[in-house]
């Protein structure tokens, strides 16, 4: 059975939401396969584009049918050339999409309490996750953080999808002034959460993992690393992750991730915009060797 589709999608809506653009794209076949935490890889610039590499975005939500056939939604921050092209798309424009990709957020088998933490556009996949968790009887609290109010995504939607919402901004323009990690201990303690789901910048995922571990909860985090293909063939998106056998390997975050158990990631390797290969990694360079 096919578990991924490549389709020429048609944009049906492109709305500005704060600092982001919310795109809806007709992409038949994706919704039936997709689960929260998976992502889409989009080609940018059209068929003769000089920007060859695909851009990856969390699936915000999917809908199997509707007026246009199956659609998918993404929330995009315009950054470089590719995201500028995507956020400039208009209804009826075409974009080549490959989805769903990667492993989804694992769901608890018991109806435990959960906390969903999103940084900036990292909240995009969490509302769909919240719905799925609540269908299973899980209590869902959300913590949304960003640098400033315009970089928060989905505050209104959060109030609908969650049993409780806490907001933080670095500059205090909305919610509590500070970081998500400042308020997270209280939320975990109050709700007795067993699982903390996170999506956002790597530094934030690291602190979510530390706070969760300190409070006896498991962290499941969706990481972000530069990806050239999104489908597992280029080996650019690797990071050091410890497996069930206790060994660390450089694994592809597009295939084995983007969701990892936070305590399995080798956070010690990330520093100053690079990710080193820890010396105890399987196949790590040896002195005098490669």
């Amino acid at each position: 059975m096919r578990d991924v589709v490549q389709v020429r999608g048609e944009v049906v809506a492109n709305r500005r939401v704060g600092a982001y653009h919310h795109l809806t794209v007709v992409a038949p076949g994706v919704a039936e396969l997709a689960r929260p935490g998976q992502f889409v890889a989009m080609a940018v610039g059209g068929p003769t584009s000089a920007n060859l590499l695909r851009r990856s975005f969390s699936l915000h939500r999917v809908s199997p049918s509707g007026a246009y056939g199956g659609t998918l939604d993404v929330v995009i921050a315009a950054k470089g050339e590719g995201t500028q092209w995507l956020t400039g798309l208009r209804p009826h424009d075409e974009v080549d999409v490959v989805a769903p990709l990667g492993r989804p957020f694992p769901l608890p088998t018991e109806p435990v309490a959960t906390v969903l933490v999103g940084g900036g556009y990292g909240s995009a996949p969490l509302f769909w996750l919240a719905e799925v968790l609540r269908e299973r009887g899980c209590r869902v609290e959300m913590v949304l953080g960003a640098a400033s109010e315009d970089r928060l995504f989905g505050v209104v939607e959060a109030r609908r999808s969650a049993d409780g919402v806490t907001i933080t901004t670095d500059d205090g323009s909305a919610g509590t002034k500070g970081w998500v990690s400042d308020v997270l201990p209280e939320v975990i303690t109050r709700t007795g959460a067993a699982v903390v789901y996170g999506c956002g910048p790597m530094g934030m995922l690291r602190s979510i993992t530390e706070v969760a571990s300190a409070h006896g909860a498991v962290a499941q985090v969706a990481v972000e690393e530069s990806m050239a293909c999104g489908v597992g063939v280029c080996m650019t998106c690797v990071m050091p992750v410890t497996g069930n056998d206790g060994l660390t390997r450089m694994v592809r975050s597009c295939v084995e991730g983007p969701v990892f158990r936070g305590d399995r990631l080798r956070w010690d390797a990330f520093d100053d915009g690079v990710c080193r290969v820890p010396a105890d990694t399987v196949g790590a360079p040896r002195p005098g060797g490669h």
Partner: peptide, 8 residues
């Protein structure tokens, strides 16, 4: 293991 990232 290959090299550190960014690799591309």
């Amino acid at each position: 293991s290959g090299r550190p990232t960014p690799r591309m």
